[in-house]
Structures are given as C-alpha cells and as structure tokens.
Design a protein around this nucleic acid. Structure first.
Lengths: 342, 342
DNA sequence: CGATTCCATGGAATCGATTCCATAACCACA
DNA sequence: TGTGGTTATGGAATCGATTCCATGGAATCG
C-alpha cells in the first residue's frame, strides 16, 4: 500500500510541499500555474490527503461523533440519518457509535471519539454523569445532548417535552372510559424514562384515574422488556384496559405478546406508544402514537453543535410532542363482562 | 482545550516520552517502577492518547469503516449492529457511513474513510466499479463486500443466495393457485436487484406461470417505490393475485397503499417480502418472508475483513435463504369473481 | 532610477506518538 | 578484574500535512 503523499504531488508538479499544501487548502497566495500543475498532479496520482496528519497539525478533523443508545431502535436510526445528512451538508462527516444501552460501551466509544479528536460530539447519554461523560465536559470538548439529558451536567440539549403528549393520551383514554391505564416505563436511569414516568403519574392523578402502582412496569427501552411488561400487567388481579408504552421497541415487544395470546389491539386492550414509527401506521388497527419530530431534533442538534464549536453557548431547545389518535385507541371501553379473560 | 500529551505524562512520571510510550503500548522493556509511575501519571492527568498521531506513525488506526446504503432500512441497521459488536470484541471501532442509496454520497464517504486511513472497509456497494470503489482496490485497502457485489471487482464477499428462497416462494404461491405473481424489483444497478430479479424470472418460467413483463415493477429499494410499484401493478388490466417485494422497505411502501385502498393482505392479495424484519411478524396477518441471517452476515464479514487485513485471501461466502410462510400467503386463491375490484 | 511594497515560493519547524539506535547500568562468568 | 550479554532508558528521526518565516523577483511610486 505505497501511500501517495503531498511530496509526491509536489515533486510531480515541480513545486514544494508547502506550495502544494497551499493550493490544496485554497490559500490565495498561489499562482495560477502552480494551481494548474498541482491539480493535474493530484488527479494523475489519485492523491488523497492523510486525514490523520492534517488533523494533527491543524487541530480540526472536520468530523463529529454521534453516539446513540441503540441503532436498531428506528427512532435512533432516523436520528442518525438526519444528523448525518445535516452534518454532511455543513462539511462534516459523522462517526456513528452504538452504546447498545450499556454504559460501559458508551464509555468505550466516547474514549475513542475523544482520542480521534472529533470536533464535537452529539450524544443521547445514559447513566449518571460519571465515567467518560465527565472527561468530555472537563476537556471542554464541544458536546450537545440529544433526546436525553443528565442531571447536574450543564450541556446544551435538544429534547422532547413528553408531558403534553402524555397528558393528551391519558385524557384521551379517560374520555373513552378507561380508568386503569397500564404503563410500561423506560429505565429510571435515563432522563426520558424519568420524565415520561413523572408525566404519566401526574396526568393519571389529575384525571382521577387509578394510581395503582402495579399498573407500572419498569422496562429498559428494549423489545424484550415490553413483552415482559405486558405479561406482568395481564397477570394482575385487575388488569389494565389500556396501555401506554414509553418507546417504540417496548411497544413492539408488547404487541408480539398480544398477538401470541390472541388478544385484539384496540378492542381487548387500547394501546398507545411513544415515538412515531412509520410501521406503526401499517398495523391493523393502526397504532396511536405520541409523535415528535426526529427531523427537527437531528437538524437542531447539528446546528447547536456547530454553534458550540464556534465558541458560542446556544440555549437548549425543547420540542413539542402530540398525540396522534389511530385505531388502537379509538373505541370506547367495553363493559367488563364482555371482555375476554386471559 | 489544553490537550494533555505524552510529554506531560512523561514529565509527571519523571521519565522520557519514549519510556512512557513503551509503558503504554505494553512493551516488555520497561521496569516495574516506570510502569507504576507512568500508570499513576496517566490516571492523574486523565490522559487520552491522540489517535491521529498514533495512527500517523504506526500506520494502524484500530478502526474499520462500514458503509451501508441506508441506515433506516432495518436490515442494514441490524447489520450495522452486528458488525459493530463483532468488531468491538476484536478491538476495532466501527465508523459507520450512510450512502443513502446514492453513489455520490458513497464516494464521499469512501474518500473520507480512505483519508482517515481506516484499517479496512466493509461495504454494501452500489453502482458500477467506478469512482472511489476503484481507488479502494487500486490502493489495496483491505475491503470486503457485504450483501452486494460488483461485477468485475474481485473482492471477498458475504452474500445471500436469494435463488433458493425465491424459488420456494414462487412454488409456494403457485401451489396456492396463483398464476400471475407481481414482482417489485430492486434496481438493476445493484447485484441483489439483478440476482433476485433473475431468480424470480427463472422460477416463474419453471413453474409455468405468467411471464407477463408488466408484472414486474422496478423500484429502488426504498419505501416510496414500493408504493408506486403497487399502484402500477393494481392498475393493470389483469392485476396480479400475489406479490413479492424484493426488500422490506418496498414491502412497507406497498402495505401502506394496500391499507389505504382497504385491500386485505392475504385475502385480496398474497404478499411475501424479502428480508425478515421483526415487525413483519406483528402485522395482521403476519407477513410471509424470505429470511436470511443478518447476524451470520455481519459476523462473517468482520472475520473476513480481519483475514484480509492480516494479508490472507479468504474465500467468499454465500449464505442460504429460505421461505417462512405466515398468514399473508397461506390462503388458496379466491375465484376471480369473489375478489374485490379496485 | 532607486526605494518600497507585494506576492509567490521554498525551507524549516511543528503537531503527538512511535521506534530505531546508542548508551549506561547491571549481572554473570571466566 | 575484564569481557560479554542483558535490560532499561533517553535522544533523535520519523510519519504527512500545515504554517511561520525568510527570500527573491516583479510591480509601483515618488
């Protein structure tokens, strides 16, 4: 792999390495002849600058890091896509890392991104503020939190106001006659898990519905815990007639079990999921969701990160959420007698 | 951002930079005292080696690149996840790029990965062998193709033998009485698009079914083209009674339209999709799919790439596919008279 | 026409870590 | 005690690109 360096280009063009470098970086202090000769040499040799060396000297790498908790979660896949497109249009390349909802892996990726001297990092953080997250802050590496935050860590963030959507959902379900709403919560170690749980608790209390603690199951945002949660809720002496899942993967896990048990969504159990995923509209009945814009979130996160890199301190942004009612939660509750037993 | 360098560590430890470097890289020619002092200094300063500088000198970066055509396609999201986990367990970090099914963006990402001097690249390529793919080969950068290949480019690959699964599908549909099977094809610019189309054509001919060319619609593997394809097929004078979609996203696009038109899957139109996605099993009726193992594909791709990096030339691997029959294709065909008109 | 500015250019230092090479210290054995 | 052989260590070169600084030539002005 005989690498072609700027010296080869300079030699072929008959100029010095310094001049070649100037031409390549668009420095105006170059003559048209040099420009032409260097350009020709670059094409002739198919020269690609060594990003390592460039970044070493100039302390910029034109790359940002994006760390998501789970690429297989469609919400984060979409987020990765929008962040990447937005960054690309600003001339930045995105290095994507996947924490797999594990703090240890998050730390490993953060270390790597720090080592590679990315110009900035967008992260949907998990855990407390310990480990590599702390290093990030102490080194003053430009950082933006997305979707989630960490208490006590003061970093600009783009998050969703889950409160409105959840309140709408609880009121909507109450209006249909539901009094016992089950909730499959995200982990309390994440800010979204806590916020959504608090919003649910408050909304249920305000609507005068059952506050039975057994109606809440604490999952981990991954599909298997949605299945486990549904099982737990159905086994209650007095099971819920409606269910809200705090993210799409746990909803999928719950739906899988409902299918297996032969229970009908929207009839035997009303169902609403947080996160609007294209697929949810294709189910029969279509799934009601609490929707928030992943495009806005990704785009704004990139804009904010560029601001931080430029030395500014942008205000955090909170995006709205709203209930989208579909077939899975549109029927009034059936009288208990006609409901199927499990 | 006052960066801490190995010199700071060496100074604090009271040794030279050379010795500090030796300790950090586990070189045995170091004394226990030096080891202890350097280790203490590293922790004290929270030192992170500069990956750029390290890679510049040692010509290894301990990172690989993975370029997928579309992160939002669950198949590639899963692939990204398995590749990343497999690479991580071998000590490599994965830089993920998203070509967005566009050759231009693929080239841009390949250029970036080449510039960053990744140790190797796993790519699901698109286009002919031109552009940056050619550079990759000419520079002898360790490369492995995954899912797709490019004619005339001799690179180890892991692909799926779509032929078996497609043949099973056509025979299965024929056994149910279908004679006119619609096919939403992938683009002929991709090897998977071509292979699957060829397999479909051959299977239909062998089964003695209709070879009407109007039954084939050429999409681009993204959801919108699935919708367009379904529309086109339904508008035929003599529309198909069964449909095979060449990937999951186009199937999703088709399903969305079926819902909108009020047509029932499995009854009004039998449906089978290539790629097994968790969600497909949750639809009602559950979707029949041609399944192939994304875990195997990702794991083997990483193994192969490490072999190439080590200087060997592994044999290409072709993984099997198989039909999984579910509700969307289990009913015998209805007599034409009882079918709904569109 | 001499003095001054301007501009393109090359040489050399630099970024941070690795690694070759030389050296010094130490042990062992004759 | 002198020679040979390890072993730990520091100095210096190196990777490839950028950038400061000095220089020589052309252009401009009084």
């Amino acid at each position: 792999m005989a690498d072609i360096t700027i010296k080869d280009v300079a030699a072929l063009a008959g100029v010095s390495a310094a001049t070649a470098s100037r031409v390549l970086s668009g420095n105006p202090a170059t003559s048209p002849q040099s420009r032409d000769k260097v350009a020709a040499a670059v094409i002739e040799l198919d020269y690609r600058p060594n990003a390592q060396a460039r970044a070493l000297r100039s302390t910029r790498s034109d790359s940002i890091g994006l760390l998501v908790p789970d690429v297989r979660n469609p919400f984060f896949a979409d987020l990765a896509h929008t962040v990447e497109q937005a960054a690309l249009s600003e001339g930045y390349v995105t290095l994507l890392g996947n924490a797999n909802e594990q703090k240890e892996q998050q730390d490993r990726y953060l270390d790597t991104l720090i080592s590679r001297r990315v110009d900035g990092i967008i992260v949907a953080p998990l855990g407390d503020g310990g480990g590599s997250i702390r290093s990030l802050i102490e080194r003053e590496i430009p950082t933006v939190f997305v979707d989630r935050t960490i208490d006590g860590i003061d970093v600009p963030s783009v998050t969703t106001d889950s409160e409105v959507g959840i309140r709408q959902t609880v009121q909507h379900l109450a209006a249909l006659g539901h009094t016992r709403i089950g909730y499959i919560s995200g982990p309390q170690a994440t800010s979204t898990g806590r916020d959504r749980f608090a919003a649910f608790t408050a909304a249920v209390a305000d609507a005068g519905l059952s506050q039975d603690p057994d109606l809440v199951y604490f999952g981990d945002f991954q599909a298997a815990s949605g299945s486990a949660g549904l099982h737990a809720l159905l086994e209650l002496h007095d099971p819920p007639t409606a269910l809200l899942a705090a993210d799409s993967l746990m909803a999928v896990g719950a739906i899988a079990i409902l299918h297996k048990l032969g229970l009908r969504i929207g009839t035997d159990l009303a169902l609403v999921a947080f996160d609007d995923i294209e697929w949810f509209a294709l189910l029969d009945p279509a799934l009601s969701v609490i929707s928030h814009s992943v495009e806005d979130m990704g785009r704004i996160a990139v804009e904010m990160l560029l601001e931080v890199i430029a030395g500014h301190t942008p205000e955090s942004v909170v995006l709205p959420s709203e209930l989208v009612i579909r077939g899975s939660s549109s029927l009034p509750i059936l009288p208990a007698s006609s409901r199927r037993k499990n």
